[in-house]
Write a protein that binds this DNA or RNA. Structure first.
Length: 764
DNA sequence: ATACTGAAGCTTTTT
DNA sequence: GCTTCAGTAT
């Protein structure tokens, strides 16, 4: 126990050893948050305050859950079994599998990922002749998910106009469709569990009593439903239950756009009468100048719980700032500095290039590629999202639950087996006429289409029959071949990678079976035997039998069902070339939680970062500032900020002002690298890089002429007495008639007569 | 059934 | 400017 608490600072120690009451830990970036969380769990168990089964630890990502598990098992070799550590969705899946009857779900219910959900909605709209111009599928999906994230069913929504009434109706129809097909979307996992526990008192009480300590990571990212879910499990308002230990950082709340509500932190403090608010402000990551920059910047936000990071490390180097003439110039500068860093002995994987939006990566990628510097771009398609893998999964899904129409549609004619659009249309007609799934509607079909459909059904049925006694990996192999997927890609020119991905599914299945504790060679279809065998059967005082979802997943669902949930809930890595010594490129969002010795934050321009769409939303700019705060605090030793005067975006050249965030950073922490009189495109010193975007266009040359005659240049920074700082976006006319279109940022876009307007040339 | 072609979209993302 | 997708032409 002594070693456990050893090396914790006073704040951390206080947090770890809090009494069993609700607590809010404000954990700054790099303050040892995960350490506190895991040590808290270990301390609770080792001091005998709780047994492992009394612990519920909730995270947002599988990665975070895994990390917690790993650290815990390093702390206490034996005791991790019985603890519930997982994501909101993973835990809900487990609960719903165990109590599927009470939750009114089929035992083999399947999970739709966002892709599947969207296509399910498209199908719904089409089947009901809904005008998808007026009700775009994405918007409908957004509406449904938004409602679910707030815990609202369709019948609880009061529509305020006709369009909304239609959306509510579609929401209800969508839920009915899902229920018919035996599928649930991500939000549904949460909502269904919440409703199950609300409605079923014995069940609720059982889990409330069981989980004496509920710990939540990244609490600032919880949405309304997740907070309600936590309150329910913690027995809030029911006189007791578990102690909720919430760890989060309001300054790092960057997911409002997907429903996260920072207000949950304040609500939690109030509703749980939190006496123990502990701030972890000691930072173990960044040098002083970097931390100063972060602190001063975030102080510009009004809605904060309040926190100031400090470090024992020295000031370190100043933050280096570079103004490039173009996005290409910016990329070129990043290459130069990266080379310098590598020459200084920096590891490539300790260099991160961050950007606000994915579109920015391409220019930088190109430059890194040309310079021969290995790089790795985060984001993009995950393993289980790849088309060929999804196809294979669809076959497996149909074998486990043939009523999954999304899966049916995906593979009924892939590889092609002569089932055309007309046949499908007829089938859909039969399906809605008889109110059954597409699969179940096949027997109603006659003629040639009916025959080929029957052939498809036979394929699924016989694969299921043949695989009855097979272990999961063999089953996957069987389907791979029986489906014709393998042959299909073998004949395709570019199919080699896809075949490799498909083959990997067999190993993924092997690995899964081993890790999840399924007996070696256990038949993939073997369901949870009897309820009595699964976990301990508990009878409460009302005589209701409760099955605790304690047992390993193996006893609650078949290997195949489990594997399919795994594929939906854990999309897998997106990095094909992991482990390579490469420069790390990613959006600021995906950098959250990571740290690097050297960090570039790129594209620091008004409109890009802060993003233009943020100014339209309430609190949008504050969220962008938190995003910038996250970006800055990723850096340990060196931080580079850069921006470009001109940038190609959506096929158009844009002239942006430098980001307002520069004005919010402490001057003495910054070192401006670009000279005050930065050469523009016309200056003698110019590179091919900088020149490139202006060449090859008569229009560009004509503009140059005009610019010359007026004495002003596009892209130039100016200051106006009334409108403040701005950037010249365009110049029309010449001489006395010259007029300039100027972007004054928050003051808006103005067209000014250059012979009249008093403009100051602004040197940066 | 496949291949091309035009139009739309385009901030951030995990489950 | 580039990608994705739906719809049409062959």
């Amino acid at each position: 126990m002594q070693n456990l608490l050893h090396n914790l600072n006073d704040e951390q120690l206080a947090a770890v050893t809090l009494p069993a009451q609700s607590a809010l830990i404000l954990a700054g970036a790099g303050s040892g948050k995960t350490r506190v969380l895991t040590t808290r769990i270990a301390w609770l168990i080792q001091t005998g305050q709780v047994s492992p089964s009394g612990i519920l630890a909730v995270t947002f990502t599988n990665k975070a859950a895994k990390e917690m598990m790993t650290r815990l098992s390093a702390m206490m070799p034996i005791n991790t079994r019985g603890m519930w550590i997982g994501t909101f969705h993973g835990l809900c899946n487990r609960l719903l599998r165990t109590h599927y009857r009470d939750a009114a779900l089929p035992q083999t219910f399947q999970i739709l990922d966002s892709q599947d959900q969207l296509s399910a909605i498209k199908r719904l709209l089409k089947a009901n002749n809904v005008d998808d111009e007026k009700f775009p599928p994405k918007e409908v999906m957004y509406f449904i998910n938004g409602a679910k994230d707030q815990g609202l069913r369709a019948d609880k929504i009061e529509p305020y106009n006709a369009d909304e009434r239609k959306k509510v109706e579609l929401y209800q129809m969508y839920d009915d469709q899902c229920q018919r097909e035996g599928v649930v979307d991500f939000a549904e996992l949460l909502l269904r569990t919440y409703e199950l526990l609300s409605r079923n008192q014995p069940l609720r009480q059982h889990y409330q009593q069981r989980f004496q300590h509920i710990l939540v990571d990244e609490f600032q990212d919880t949405n309304d439903l997740q907070y309600k879910w936590l309150k329910l499990l913690a027995g809030h308002g029911e006189g007791g239950g578990g102690a909720l230990f919430a760890v989060g950082d309001d300054d790092q709340s960057i997911y409002a756009f997907r429903g996260a509500n920072v207000g949950n932190m304040i609500a939690f403090e109030r509703e749980f009468h939190v006496k123990n608010l502990i701030k972890l402000e000691q930072n173990y990551r960044s040098h002083g100048h970097i931390l100063d920059a972060a602190n001063v910047l975030i102080a510009n936000n009004s809605k904060r719980l309040g926190k100031n990071l400090r470090t024992d490390a020295g000031h370190g180097e100043q933050v280096r700032v570079y103004e490039a003439t173009s996005d290409l110039g910016e990329a070129q500068w990043i290459i130069e500095e990266t080379k310098n860093l590598i020459a200084d002995g920096a590891s490539r994987s300790e260099i991160a290039v961050l950007y606000r939006s994915n579109a920015q990566s391409r220019v930088i990628e190109h430059a890194l590629f040309s310079a021969g510097i290995p790089y790795h771009v985060y984001g993009g398609l995950r393993y289980f999202q790849r088309a060929e893998v999804k196809h294979l999964i669809s076959y497996l899904q149909l074998m486990d639950n043939p009523h999954n129409d999304s899966a049916f549609m995906r593979v009924v004619n892939f590889p092609t087996r002569g089932i055309g659009a007309r046949t499908i249309e007829n089938l859909q007609g039969a399906s809605s006429q008889y109110g059954v799934s597409l699969y179940a509607a096949v027997p109603y079909m006659t003629g040639k289409g009916g025959t080929s459909l029957a052939g498809f059904v036979k394929l699924i049925e016989s694969a299921r029959f043949e695989s009855q006694q097979m272990a999961l990996p063999e089953l996957v192999r069987l389907v791979l071949e029986a489906s014709g997927l393998l042959t299909h890609y073998q004949t395709e020119k570019e199919g080699a990678d896809r075949i490799e991905n498909l083959e990997q599914m067999v190993s993924a299945a092997t690995q899964f079976v081993a890790e999840e504790g399924y007996g070696h060679g256990a038949p993939a279809h073997l369901g949870p035997q009897s309820q009595a065998q699964a976990g301990a059967a508990i009878v409460n005082q009302d005589g209701v039998e409760i099955l605790d979802a304690d047992a390993p997943l193996a006893t609650v669902m078949s290997p195949l069902s489990a594997f399919l949930s795994h594929a939906s809930l854990e999309a897998g890595d997106n990095q094909a070339t992991a482990g390579q010594q490469a420069v790390q490129m990613m959006t600021v969002h995906s950098a959250k939680g990571l740290e690097f010795n050297n960090v570039f934050i790129t594209g620091l321009e008004e409109g890009l970062f802060p993003h233009e769409s943020s100014s339209r939303e309430e609190g949008g700019v504050e969220e962008e500032r938190r995003l910038m705060y996250v970006a800055i605090t990723r850096a340990r030793q060196r931080l580079y900020l850069c921006f470009a005067q001109t940038r190609m975006l959506h096929g158009q050249t844009r002239y942006n002002m430098k980001s307002r965030f520069f004005d919010e950073l402490p001057e003495d922490a910054l070192k401006w690298l670009s000279a005050k009189s930065q050469p523009h495109w016309f200056a003698n010193k110019k590179t091919a890089w900088d020149e490139a975007p202006m060449l090859g266009s008569d229009n560009a040359i004509a503009q140059k002429m005009q610019q010359k005659s007026s004495g002003w240049r596009i892209g130039e920074s100016v200051e106006h007495a009334k409108f403040g700082e701005g950037v010249i976006v365009n110049i029309e006319g010449s001489g006395a008639n010259a007029r300039a279109q100027i972007n004054f940022g928050s003051a808006g876009m103005k067209v000014l007569d250059l012979s009249i307007a008093k403009l100051e040339r602004l040197a940066r």
